[in-house]
Nucleic acid binder design. Sequence first.
DNA 1: AATGGATGGTTTCGTCTGAAACGGATGCCT
DNA 2: AGGCATCCGTTTCAGACGAAACCATCCATT
Lengths: 164, 164
Amino acid sequence: MHIETFFPYRLAVVAERFSRQLVAVYGRQHGLSREEWRLLFLLEDAGSLDSLQLSQRTSLDKVQVSRAATRLEEKGLITRTILGSDRRLRNYAITDEGRRLFRQAFGDVEVQAARILEAMPARDRAALERGIEALDRAIAKATQPEAGQDGRSQAADPVPGRGR
Amino acid sequence: MHIETFFPYRLAVVAERFSRQLVAVYGRQHGLSREEWRLLFLLEDAGSLDSLQLSQRTSLDKVQVSRAATRLEEKGLITRTILGSDRRLRNYAITDEGRRLFRQAFGDVEVQAARILEAMPARDRAALERGIEALDRAIAKATQPEAGQDGRSQAADPVPGRGR
DNA sequence: AATGGATGGTTTCGTCTGAAACGGATGCCT
DNA sequence: AGGCATCCGTTTCAGACGAAACCATCCATT
């Protein structure tokens, strides 16, 4: 078996290479870490989110959110307030400055992403999008085998769910 | 723009989720880091490689190789010798113990990968493979030709071309 | 052969990361 | 109300990482 043809390796390498092209933009050029970028992305879209909503919509765990939010707050890009209804929770909101920075960074990232994706034939691009969505579903399916109705429950659970 | 529909985000999240399913096997279960895993993979295939051949065939940089090789040597899974022909170079070879461990880990990883990929309809799987290969080519295409406009030829390609 | 520049591997440094520990806050149960 | 388990966010700690500095070796030129 050659590693170059082992699909999981190909996927990981290509995905990382693509990601690096974008990190080069929002990271090096606009000074955001990956987590900060994602958090700003969510907040620019929603304006304001509490931590429960946030954890539902990100692939970030609570530690990552906490650290990214600290840095974003220090930079004045978001505000973080304790919720009155449940003082364990936080409400995150994007500031004008944060919105301004994000929009600029997002524009640049979009350009870079488009530059790469438009170098693909349209059919390949469609195949990629289709394949990624299907893979996502397959992971969910293979990871949580029960799914209720058809009763074909796979035997022992070999990999405890990713505790996020 | 919702982050959930931003393609670069989708790709990164899904690829990482897939990767985690495999790291859970060769990592948690067999005690290998990602870099150790890749190095063993190459060496099990080739038996023995010098560092030049190795850098052509991996996405690992020299620091990662050095560190992973140190750990693998400590564990007795590979040997590392200085080449007589050029004493700057190293020759890496897999040991019997390394081969044994890798084969076991590889079997387990393959099962886990197949469990997920076989949960996809065959056509989606084909689309995914096609899309990934095309994306790889598109990244190469969109990043290489930038040397022309820039005046300063900034040769240093961070990812040396994958020989093929 | 000696010098200077290039090449390859290792080490160092500051930062980041994940897992676990921690501490505040809430809801449940008696 | 008082315990007690649970839930959240933050902090801690040890290990991992990337970039740059560093050291050894080779090669080209003289």
